[in-house]
Amino acid sequence: MDVMLSEVFWIGLIAAAIRLATPILLASLGEILAERAGILNIGIEGMLLIGAFGGFLASHGTGSPWIGVLGGMIAGMALALLFAYLTITLAADQIVCGIMANLLAFGVTGFGHRVIFGMTTVIPSAPPLADWHIPGLAAIPVLGPILFQQNPLVYLGLVLVVACWFMLFRTSWGLKLRAVGEHPLAADSVGVSVRQVRYAAVLACGGLAGIGGAFLSLSQLSMFVEEMSAGRGFIALAVVIFARWHPVGALGASILFGAAEALQFRLQAQAADIPFQFLAILPYVLTVIALVSIVGRSVQPAALTRPYHKEGH
């Protein structure tokens, strides 16, 4: 257990926590936007998964991991568009639609993967998104490996935290978004289009989740595995509650979950006497505990899950 006390261990753990937090962070930022606009997007798990597949496919096809990221984003947005049509235009139940979106993503990625790549023993791969070592900063001891030798999408995630915060609280878009999620009728009565705002929020959510998915399939190993989102979208739902619908909170909560995952991998490698399953359930148990501990102290957007019907038109 000496290993656990070494500096290398901790630096590695924190760096891994931030890396593993990234897909959860991207998804939860998207979910914050959707929920702040009044849409509970359970389908975010599917959007993450389809983003992973779309990203992999685009990178594999074009040879450019960046086009892959774009592909992941578009795939996520495509599913989000369908979800938005059902929940916003048709005002169908958001939870049911979310379940449907997850099932669809599961089917589409499984089917697509098997049809396109066949049932070969050779695992197909795509050009991965290489880490960026930020010149100068990457050499700083401790901080360098933790913060400045990461995947570009990790940096993107951090930038998006600030961007989301700024958008929500310092722009007219954010004001409209928050108003729509709290009291859509009031927003409508001053000429804010509830439908437009909600569509934009859900599409942004799908896009962000799609990028998060692309991170899963394009960073490091660069391959697609069926069901590779493994519940990270659902964890993002918990992160949003834990973060009280605030982007900065989402950063902290995501890193916490990333750390749980990183710790699991590390303990798995270090301590053979603990069954790996006990460590594997850590993030999920943590989610439940987080959820229970936060109850009553967080207030969700007042119009969450409520469809808005414009009458008289």
């Binding site: 722009t171 004001l175 108003a179 009291h183 009031a186 927003a187 009565s189 804010v192 957007p301 007042a302």
Partner: peptide, 26 residues
């Protein structure tokens, strides 16, 4: 039934949906 968003401030309610000078910056 007032069309005010309870979670927002008075200022935010008053300017909601208005164009600001440096749109979209508030």
């Amino acid at each position: 039934h007032f069309m005010l968003v309870p979670a927002l401030t008075v200022l935010e309610n008053v300017i909601l949906g208005m164009r600001s000078k440096h749109e979209p910056l508030l």
